[in-house]
C-alpha cells in the first residue's frame, strides 16, 4: 500500500475503507462497491483498486477488468458538467445526429472528450428511455427531452452560469 501523504488522501482512504466495510457481507459486492466509490468521488481513483482487490480477495487485474468493462465507471475525474447525448435509433429519427454534431461544435470537442476549458464532458448514451420525446440528453443528473440545438444552447448556458 502506498504511504498516506496528506489529509485528503487520509480522508479518501477512510471513506473507501468504510464503503468496503459496508459491503463486505454482500454477495457479488463488486459492482455495488464501485458505484459507492464513484458516487463518493466522481470516479474510481487508482488508489482504490488495490484496496478493493484486497477486501474481495481478488487480483488488481480482475478489479481493473470490471471497471474498464462497464461504460458507467470512470478512472479519471469527470469534467465540471457532463452532457450525455442519446445516440440510439429513436433519437436519430428526431435529429439526434444533428444534435450531437451541434454539441460537438459548440463544446469544441468530440464525443468521449471534454471541452477545452474542461467545463463540459461530452458523452454518448444509448437510450435514456425517452424514445417518444426525442432527441434526449442528460446534463449531469437531469434528463431533458425534445431538445433542439437552441434548447441545448440554453441548457449549457444555464449550467455554465450556475
Amino acid at each position: 500500500m502506498e504511504p498516506v501523504l496528506n489529509t485528503q488522501n487520509t480522508q479518501e482512504s477512510v471513506a473507501i475503507d468504510r464503503i468496503l466495510e459496508n459491503h463486505c457481507q454482500q454477495a457479488g459486492a463488486l459492482l455495488p462497491i464501485l458505484h459507492a466509490i464513484q458516487d463518493a468521488f466522481g470516479h474510481i481513483p487508482d488508489s482504490a483498486v488495490a484496496r478493493i482487490a484486497g477486501a474481495l480477495n481478488q487480483s488488481c487485474a480482475e478489479i481493473h477488468g470490471v471497471i474498464s468493462f462497464y461504460q458507467h465507471f470512470r478512472s479519471e475525474p469527470a469534467a465540471r458538467h457532463t452532457v450525455h447525448v442519446c445516440q440510439a435509433e429513436a433519437c436519430q429519427a428526431r435529429g439526434g445526429r444533428e444534435l450531437t454534431a451541434h454539441a460537438e461544435r459548440v463544446l469544441g470537442c468530440k464525443l468521449h472528450e471534454h471541452s477545452p476549458d474542461r467545463a463540459f464532458g461530452l458523452e454518448a448514451v444509448h437510450c435514456l428511455g425517452l424514445c417518444a420525446s426525442g432527441p434526449a440528453i442528460q446534463l449531469d443528473d437531469r434528463q431533458h427531452a425534445r431538445v433542439d440545438p437552441a434548447r441545448l444552447d440554453q441548457l449549457l448556458h444555464q449550467a455554465r452560469e450556475a
Binding site: 440510439a88 429513436a90 433519437c91 424514445c131
Partner: peptide, 8 residues
Amino acid sequence: DEGDSGTF
C-alpha cells in the same frame, strides 16, 4: 436492463 432503444 431495458437497454433496447425505443423501449420504455
